[in-house]
Design a protein around this nucleic acid. Structure first.
Lengths: 237, 237
DNA sequence: TCGTGTTGTGGTCATAATGGTCGTGACGCC
DNA sequence: GGCGTCACGACCATTATGACCACAACACGA
């Protein structure tokens, strides 16, 4: 493709905005067109860019903004007929926000904090999406399906050997919602055996997703309790 | 989860609308809430349904309407904060329309004319999407990715090869009436072999009609048990 | 204060039983 | 009669469990 994808970075936190802009610059085929620190300026930036004949292609949109929600920014843009693509970046992980973002036609939903690898994954998916759309003037059902599928293609099924994704998910959900839990407690609440629960907890610990600390005060060997670390880390560096 | 998905069919052509409504009725877990023949009535129907406390979940939205474009209907709804899901149905195959639909957060884009198989594929994808979203109050990056991926996952594979409608019906009846059954139990009750029973159950799972979860507690590899989608899951006592 | 016994989980191994795939065979259709 | 379709049996791969020993902190007596 010829012209780079022009990206508008929206975040009220200057450091975060700068970091995201740097991520964009680091990605071949993308360039930061501008940055905005509020919902109002974000909308203006998009409209101004279009009037200037150099429209923004993609907006990295934070949800927590001082003047209005990022979702409201999206609604405003959509109401004005702006078909700019949106990549939501937020710490909100509740279903309602995810759903709302989905209905506003975002091309991706990134949960903060994230690593560059995860960010790049989304940009790659977006690149595929654009490529699938730009291939022809008219499309068949297959092409349409492929284009929309490109956005979500990079879903990781998580396949460590010896562990089942479903069990991993249920253990993860327990730890995330239950404060600090011992292996035995996780076992009990998930109807798993202690051994199995511990195996999954150890795996999550190795990946940095949960933290581990001993629980003193009771007789017997101290129990290890596990708590959610709340980060999506990709180790290996 | 248990209640069927309420669908609003929008098409200015009465015969087409009726056909689409019939398609909906033919799909388990879906019901037609109403039909609308113009953009204005469509918007009103959505708003009225919400006010009545029985909101529409999904709108089958034709683009060619007498008073306004279906995309304008979508914009109007979005501007009002309506987060109803939209499935666009149109003969338009130009990239611009597809793109515009994408930015309005549609859950699917169907090009007329289409067969019931294609239609059902979209409904299946939507069912998976809803299931992925409804699983928890908060989601991780993986879960979000999976949810969005669900919408486009049905792009290729659904090949009902090796399945007979008769066998499918008997397996479906068993699962629907029998609570949570393992593949082996379904096999026994249907006088099928475990392999065959599992293949049908797996097919139903892929179509989003049944849910699957491991049954822990016994030695050996955990047995997967299948339950009709629409029953509530209450693990762990 | 120190050392020893007690307690209860950490961690590992072999075992158990299903998941999933391959090739074969019976049935029906062209 | 040839061919495609569908179900079955058997096999290997996969994954949770129970049992076992090792370990680490508390409790108690000297």
């Amino acid at each position: 493709m010829s012209a780079p994808v022009r990206v508008l970075v929206v975040d009220d936190e200057p450091l975060t905005a700068a970091a995201h802009a740097q991520y964009v610059e680091r990605s071949p085929g993308f360039e930061t067109a501008a940055t905005a620190v509020s919902g109002r300026t974000a909308v203006q930036a998009v409209l101004a860019a279009r009037r200037a004949g150099r429209p923004v292609d993609l907006v990295l949109l934070d949800v927590n903004l001082p003047d209005m929600s990022g979702l409201d920014v999206a609604r405003t843009l959509r109401a004005r007929g702006e078909s700019v693509d949106l990549l939501v970046i937020t710490a909100h992980r509740d279903v309602a926000t995810v759903r709302a973002a989905g209905t506003l036609g975002v091309v991706g939903y990134l949960i903060k904090p994230f690593t560059y690898a995860v960010f790049e994954e989304k940009l790659t998916a977006y690149r595929r999406y654009r490529s699938a759309l730009g291939s022809a003037g008219t499309m068949g059902q297959d092409e349409v399906d492929r284009a929309f599928a490109a956005l979500g293609a990079a879903a990781r099924p998580d396949a460590p050997k010896g562990l089942s994704p479903q069990t991993l998910e249920s253990v993860t959900a327990l730890v995330r919602g239950g404060g600090w839990l011992s292996a035995g407690e996780v076992a009990e609440r998930s109807t798993l055996s202690r051994v199995t629960a511990r195996r999954y907890l150890e795996h999550l610990t190795a990946r940095g997703l949960v933290q581990r600390r001993p629980r003193y005060g009771t007789p017997g060997r101290p129990e290890l309790e596990y708590g959610w670390a709340g980060q999506d880390v990709s180790p290996g560096g």
